[in-house]
Structures are given as structure tokens and as C-alpha cells.
């Protein structure tokens, strides 16, 4: 689903965010991306989203090399990737329903299908009863679940999350992670960036560890115990 081949990302100020990173995430696989803040997790996700382009190396998503994707094709590519952000990126000038409907509106889904699919997505994250509310009135955990509903409403084959539990307490965090696992169970490939090692280890999934831009570990948490200095 995702393939990085000797990817290096240097920014304009010559700082190196990623250095010679290679890995592959299989279709239907779920993995965590860990490392201290500034280790390059966000940059890696941005490369997949084509919010950034690599300085060298190749990135493939869904079997498609991204290096030759012209700017105008980027939106079509993003429609196949659901993304969840730490700050959830919800819009407070519209209802929960309209927030979740955005990806469908963008792709021109007929209005009658929109309602059905938005409710299905809200049902999955357990917030169907709040569709008419403004997200500003919901709790942090609920807001993040709306962000997840928006990410999956399009039924993307790939789901990315950048520190989705960054602002949540441990109980809510575990709930959010369980949601991701549920989506993975029905075939969605999932890649979650998180610095919360104990939470990630509890999930028992594959773990990619970044350290100062280099991929220093790749394996399940039991294999990883020594690698991540912890």
C-alpha cells in the first residue's frame, strides 16, 4: 500500500527531516510510527499525502509512484487517503454532519447518498445522535471521533493519523486506537504516528521507529524493546 525507497527529505533551511528511509506497508496492514517529536513522523506522513515531496528517493502509494504526480492530480490522490489530525481540523461554522460530509461533497457524491454515508460513518464512531450539533460543543474525544468519521466516510483504502491522541487522556486514547483497529479489521491499511510508546506497545502492532530522521527500528513491540531505548 505504501512503499518508501531510500527517501530523503531536506528542507529549504538544509535541515534533514528524513534520511534514507525505506519500508513497505502491505495492503490491509496496520502499523505505528513512533519516535520523539521532531524525529520526522509528520514529514513522512506529509510525503504520503503529497503535502511535501521527497528530496531524493521514491514514494509509492497504492502501487502508484508519486514522483510523477502533477500538482493538479494531487486532489484525486488524496481522495483515497483518509487522514486524522492531532488538532482534528474540524470546521466550527457548520454542523457535525456537514463536517463529515466534506470529503463526499468534494467528490460529487449525489446528495441522497451523502446522507446515508455520513450517518454510516457517524454510527461507526458512535456519534450518530450528535449529527445536528456544532462540533465546538463536543468534548475533545468526540471531536477527534468526528475527525475519524470524516476520514473514513469516503471508504478510503488507506487511513493515516498524525498524533490522533495527542490531546486526549489515556482512556479516550485507547478508545480512539480501538477504532483504528476496527477499521483495519475490515481491510483498511492504517498508519498511525504517535509518540505515546506505552499506548502503541499495548496495541501489539508493527512499529516503525524514527530517530532523527532515520528508521532505526521496524518490528512488533516485543522485538523492539531494546531498539527504542526503552
Amino acid at each position: 500500500m505504501i512503499e518508501f525507497e531510500r527517501v530523503t527529505k531536506r528542507y529549504a533551511d538544509h535541515s534533514v527531516a528524513l534520511h534514507d528511509v525505506s519500508f513497505a506497508l502491505e495492503r490491509g496492514e496496520m502499523a505505528f510510527l513512533t519516535g520523539h517529536s521532531g524525529a520526522g513522523k509528520s514529514t513522512l506522513l506529509k510525503l504520503i499525502m503529497l503535502m511535501e515531496r521527497p528530496s531524493s528517493g521514491r514514494v509509492q502509494v497504492g502501487g502508484q509512484p508519486l514522483d510523477r504526480t502533477p500538482r493538479r492530480r494531487i486532489p484525486y490522490l488524496r481522495r483515497h487517503i483518509g487522514v486524522v489530525f492531532q488538532d482534528h481540523q474540524l470546521l466550527f461554522d457548520r454542523t457535525v454532519f456537514d463536517n463529515v460530509a466534506m470529503p463526499l461533497e468534494v467528490t460529487g457524491v449525489p446528495p441522497r447518498d451523502v446522507a446515508r454515508r455520513v450517518r454510516a460513518a457517524l454510527d461507526k464512531v458512535g456519534l450518530l445522535s450528535k449529527e445536528r450539533m456544532n462540533p465546538v460543543r463536543l468534548s475533545g474525544g468526540e471531536q477527534q471521533r468526528i475527525g475519524i468519521a470524516r476520514a473514513v466516510v469516503n471508504k478510503p483504502p488507506l487511513l493515516l493519523a498524525d498524533e490522533p491522541t495527542g490531546n486526549l487522556d489515556p482512556a479516550l486514547s485507547a478508545e480512539i486506537m480501538d477504532l483504528f483497529r476496527e477499521f483495519n479489521r475490515v481491510g483498511v491499511s492504517v498508519l498511525v504516528a504517535s509518540h505515546d510508546i506505552s499506548l502503541v506497545q499495548a496495541m501489539g502492532c508493527r512499529m516503525l521507529t524514527l530517530s532523527e530522521g532515520r528508521l532505526t527500528g521496524d518490528g512488533s513491540h516485543s522485538q523492539m524493546r531494546g531498539a527504542y531505548g526503552g
Binding site: 500500500m1 497504492g62 484525486y76 481522495r79 478510503p156 483504502p157
Partner: peptide, 21 residues
């Protein structure tokens, strides 16, 4: 995966991974 939505034709609704209209 990143198929052009204009080429996706008529797939049955609700199929996984078929995020195109």
C-alpha cells in the same frame, strides 16, 4: 488505488476501497 474517478465507471455501491463516485 489512486484510480482516476472519471474512469471508475459503475461499481456497486458500498464496495470497500471503491471511494469513487
Amino acid at each position: 488505488m489512486a484510480a482516476d474517478p472519471r474512469h471508475s465507471g459503475t461499481q456497486s455501491a458500498g464496495r470497500r476501497g471503491a471511494a469513487r463516485p
